[in-house]
Computed example of a mutant assay.
Amino acid sequence: MRSASAAPRWALLSSGCAPVLLVGSWAIAQARQGPEYDPAADTLSVLASYGAASYWLMTGMLLALGTCYVMTAYALRQAATAGRLALAGGGLSALALTLVPAPSSGGALEHGAVATVGVVLLGAWPPLAAARAGAPTPWGLRFDVSLAASGVMFASALWFWAELQSGRAPGVAERVVTFLHALWPFLVVLSCRRSAAA
């Protein structure tokens, strides 16, 4: 742990904005896409593809989401450096997705590769950020809690991969994994602030 002080208020703001931006943007985008869009069967990449009704909305959301992750990683001084770098890398992956959006139909190797890097980094950051054993630690940075969070994120990512293969409900699985990725930094920042206030 680099500091026992609370994460700055802007870390609370940036981490808290991430899940709100994510869910709000996909809700608006799927409404704009119309009835032909099936949120259970269609992925978020469909909403952000070239020619989609909400291409610019989803591109803006990715830019804001990536920035939130990077700002949170910078501010979260209580976390170990490796975890902060992984979280920032996940944010940079979100930013990079705007450069390689999915095509309007079919897949894209570049898009899939960047998205996979982001999923791995955002899934791996919790245990990498955990504090060393023996130090007084906010619950969100305890190794056991962080490992459990990471396990849930990777399990949801595997579920998403399985749904992509089967075609049953990849949209649902993707929303779960991306929401978990967006929510966990906020919970960690909350735990750091509560620990510092205690």
Rank of each mutant, 00 (worst) to 15 (best):
S3K: 00
S3G: 04
S5N: 06
A6F: 02
P8L: 07
R9V: 14
R9H: 11
S15E: 01
C17T: 07
V23E: 04
A27C: 11
A27Y: 03
Q30M: 15
A40G: 08
A40P: 00
L44T: 05
Y50C: 03
G51K: 09
G51A: 11
G51R: 09
G51Q: 11
S54N: 06
L57Q: 12
T59S: 14
G60C: 13
G60R: 09
T67C: 12
T67N: 04
V70K: 01
Y74G: 05
A79V: 12
A82E: 14
A82N: 08
R84N: 10
L85S: 02
L87M: 15
A88V: 03
G91I: 04
L92S: 04
S93Q: 04
A94G: 00
A94S: 13
A96E: 06
L109M: 15
G112R: 06
A115M: 13
G118F: 01
L121D: 05
P126C: 12
A131P: 00
W139F: 13
G140C: 10
G140L: 06
G151E: 11
V152P: 01
F154L: 14
S156V: 02
L158E: 08
W159E: 03
Q165G: 07
G167M: 08
A169K: 01
P170G: 11
G171M: 04
V172D: 03
V176Y: 02
H181C: 13
L183Q: 07
V188T: 12
S191R: 02
S191G: 09
S191K: 03
A196H: 03
